[in-house]
Design a protein around this nucleic acid. Structure first.
Lengths: 337, 337
DNA sequence: AGACGTCGTCGAAGCGCTTCACCAGCGGCG
DNA sequence: CGCCGCTGGTGAAGCGCTTCGACGACGTCT
C-alpha cells in the first residue's frame, strides 16, 4: 500500500506538504505542486479513507436509507439512488447503502460511528420514527419526501399537491365532469406516506374547485388488483371519463383492462399518469403524464447536503414544480348528448 | 462523541480490555465483560469506523458496483442489492454503493483507499473491463454473473443455460414443435452480457435436441418494441406456439398483444417467462416461469465473500439450479390437424 | 535600513482504535 | 514443593492522515 509518507519522500517534500497539495488548504508553489502531483500519479497513491476520516473527522460518505417496501415503484427509487451516487461522486463523496431493515437505530449507529457525514432518507412517512433520532443526534440529513412536521429539516420532493391539482385541471380543461384517482397501494396510505396523501389532497381540492365529480381508490400492483379497482370504480360511477393514475405497476393492467372493456383511450376515457417519462413513453397509447423528476430529486438532495456541510442553513422545503406533458392518452371528454 | 477510552474509564478497565470485549478475540471474564457491556450501553458507545479501519486495516465495508444500464430489469437489481445489504449487516458489514459511471477505475480507488474490504460486481460482461483490475489489485471480490474467463474468480449466478434448457424441455413436453425465445434488449447481447447469451445457448441446444423449430429475437422494452418483435416472429414462423420470454419489461405488452391478435394463452400459445415470481404472479394469466432467485444470489455473494475473508478459497462458479413453476400460461400444444 | 507581512514549507501532535508483548496470579503436575 | 502453562488483564506502539504553530526567505512600507 502506498502512503502519503512515501509520496512525500518520492517528491522530496514533507508529508504535510503533500497533504496540503491534495486538500488545497494552503497555497503551494506551482513547482512543488507539480512535483507532488507527479509522484502521486507515478506511485498510484490513493489516500486511506479510514485514516483521513480519523484525522479530519469527516468521512466523505453520505448514507442513503432506502425502504424495503414492496409497494413502492422500484425503478424510481433506483433512479434516485443512482442520481444521488453520481452527484455525490462529483463532490468527492461516496454513498453508503442502508436498508430500513436495520430499523431507525441505523440513524444512531451511522451518526455515532462516523461512518457517514450526512444522510439521505427516502420514503419518509408523515410520522417517521427516524426523525426524532435525527433531531436528537443533530446529524446532517436531507429527506426525500415530507414528514408531518418538517421544521428545521431539509426536505426535497415533488410538489405532489400541485401534481394532483395539475392533473385535475387538465381533465377539467378537457371537459371531463367525473374523474377518479387511482392511487398507490392501500398500505402506502395506511402508513401515511406523504406523497400519496398530498396528491390526493391536491386532486380533491382542485376537482372540487372545478366542480368535478370525484372518486379516489387505492390500487395494488398486479392484474387482479388493477382490474378489480377499475371495474368497481366504473360500477360506482359509470360516467367517469377521466382517470389519474399514480401507480406505475398497475398502469399496463389498467390500460389493457380499459381496452378489453371496450373503452377507447383517449376517445372514451382520458388517462393522466403520475410516473417517470420513460414509463409514459413505453405505454400504448403513450401517456399524458406528470413526470416524476427522480434524478433531480436525488441531485438536489445531495447538493443541499453539501451546502449544509459548508455551513449554510438549508432547512426548509424544496418542492419541485410538477410538469404535465400531454401525450396520446388524454383528449376532450366524449359528448354526453 | 463517546470513545473507547471513555468506556474503559467508566467500566474501570483498560482500553485494550474494552477492545477485546468488543471483538471477542480474547477470553474475558464474565464479570468484566458484563461491566464493560453495561458501560457501552449506558454511554451509547459506537466504535469510530475510521479509527477501526485504520488500526485493523479492515473497513467492514463491501463495495457494490451496480450498472447504470437502462436495459436491465431494475427490480431484480434492486432486490439483489437489498439482499446483499441485509446479509452484509448480518455479518457486521456495511455496503458502499458504486455506479459504473465512475468507470472501471473505481475498482482501483476502492481497493487502494481501503474504503471497502471486498466488492461485488453486478452486470458482469463476458469481457469485463473491471476484471483485469481485479486480478491486478488482488482485491477480494464476488461477481454476480459470469465473465468469459472466470478462472480464479468467485462467481454467483443462476444457471442460465439450464434455465434455457428447462424452458425448452417444458414446451417440448407439452407437444410444441415451433418455439421462440424473446430475449433481452439487443444492447444486452451486443455488450455480451453472459446471462442472455447463456440462456440462448441452453435454449437453442435443448430445442435442437428435442427437434423443435427455433427462433430467437431480442426485444426492447415498451409496447412498440414488444408488439413489433412479436408480429415479426409470427410472420416469419406462423406456427410458433411456444414462447420463452426473458424480458420482464416487455411481458405485459407481449401478453396484451397476443390477446389482441386473437391468440389465447394457454389454449393457442404457451408462454414461459424467465422472471421473478412476483412478476409471474401479477400477470394475467399467471405465468409459468423460471424464477430469478435474486435474493439468493445476493445472499450467496456476501456469504462467499465472508468465507473468502476467513481464508477459504471460494473461487469457482456457484450456479443456482433453475426451477420452473407451472402456472396458467402454458399448456398442451393445440392440435394441428 | 529596519521592521513587518506574506508565502511556502516543515515538524510534530494527535485523531480512536487494534494488537503485540508482557505480566500477575493460580491451579495442576511431576 | 517448585515449576510450568493457563487465563485475564494491562500498557504502549503505531495505523496514515490532517492541521496547528513555527520558521526561513522574501518583498514592502515607512
Amino acid at each position: 500500500m502506498v502512503t502519503l509518507a512515501q509520496v512525500a519522500r518520492h517528491a522530496g517534500v514533507s508529508p504535510s506538504t503533500v497533504s496540503y497539495v491534495i486538500s488545497g488548504k494552503r497555497s503551494i508553489s506551482q513547482d512543488t505542486r507539480l512535483r507532488v502531483e507527479r509522484s502521486i500519479a507515478e506511485l498510484g497513491y490513493h489516500p486511506h479513507a479510514g485514516a483521513r476520516a480519523l484525522a479530519s473527522n469527516r468521512s466523505n460518505v453520505i448514507a442513503l436509507m432506502i425502504p424495503l417496501r414492496t409497494d413502492m415503484f422500484v425503478p424510481v427509487m433506483m433512479e434516485i439512488a443512482i442520481a444521488i451516487t453520481t452527484t455525490a461522486r462529483r463532490f468527492g463523496h461516496d454513498v453508503l447503502l442502508l436498508t430500513s431493515e436495520e430499523g431507525p437505530s441505523a440513524v444512531k449507529r451511522v451518526a455515532a460511528s462516523g461512518l457517514a457525514d450526512a444522510m439521505i432518507l427516502m420514503d419518509v412517512e408523515l410520522e417517521d420514527e427516524r426523525i426524532p433520532l435525527l433531531r436528537q443526534t443533530g446529524a446532517a440529513a436531507a429527506l426525500i419526501g415530507l414528514p408531518a412536521d418538517p421544521a428545521g429539516l431539509t426536505c426535497v420532493d415533488l410538489d405532489f399537491e400541485a401534481t394532483g391539482a395539475l392533473a385535475a385541471d387538465h381533465l377539467a380543461d378537457l371537459g371531463h365532469r367525473e374523474v377518479a384517482l387511482i392511487g398507490a397501494a392501500e398500505s402506502v396510505y395506511r402508513r401515511h406516506t406523504g406523497f400519496a396523501e398530498r396528491t390526493l389532497a391536491g386532486f380533491r381540492q382542485q376537482a372540487a374547485a372545478r366542480g368535478l365529480g370525484f372518486l379516489h381508490r387505492p390500487c395494488g400492483a398486479g392484474h387482479e388488483a388493477a382490474s378489480g379497482t377499475l371495474s368497481r370504480i366504473l360500477q360506482e360511477r359509470p360516467n367517469t371519463t377521466g382517470f389519474v393514475v399514480q401507480n406505475e405497476a398497475a398502469l399496463p393492467h389498467l390500460l389493457s383492462q380499459l381496452r378489453q372493456s371496450g373503452r377507447a383511450v383517449p376517445e372514451d376515457v382520458s388517462v393522466v399518469a403520475v410516473c417517470p417519462d420513460e414509463v409514459a413513453l413505453h405505454s400504448a397509447p403513450q401517456l399524458t403524464s406528470v413526470s416524476i423528476p427522480a434524478q433531480e430529486m436525488g441531485r438536489r438532495a445531495v447538493e443541499l447536503l453539501m451546502a449544509q456541510a459548508g455551513g449554510e442553513d438549508t432547512s426548509g422545503l424544496t418542492l419541485l414544480r410538477p410538469a404535465l406533458t400531454v401525450r396520446e392518452s388524454s383528449g376532450p371528454a366524449p359528448r354526453t348528448d
